[in-house]
Amino acid sequence: MEKIPILKMGKFLLVTIQVDLYDRLALTLEEDLIEMVFKTGSKGVLIDISALSIVDSFMGKIIGNIAGMSSIMDAETVVVGMQPAVAITLIELGLPLSGVHTALNIEKGMALLQSRMKADLDDDENDGDD
């Protein structure tokens, strides 16, 4: 069965969606990704959807789900490279994906995750001091 690869890159997980997502594939991805977050203890998930040209409400919901699940497992989700048409569609569907961080491209997404990690670490250090 077709699967979307989940790559471990340092402390983060990298998912690039290069094919059109159909419902089964998206559900499998959701399951695999959460499993990976648990197994690797990653602190950040980067989902690249720049090749995705069509989304529906189900796909929007799956992306929201992944972000929600990761965040309760202490990992941040960043969605990068969303196409204008996809963004407009999601907005028109009333899915602003409020829990999800976004970035223009992989580079900026990575930088965002790193800066958030750093902020977390600083917080931890401060907590230690107190």
Partner: peptide
């Protein structure tokens, strides 16, 4: 609001 939200989804 829609435009702002769409921009945010794009990562800007």
């Amino acid at each position: 609001i829609k435009t702002v939200n769409a921009t945010r989804l794009m990562g800007a």
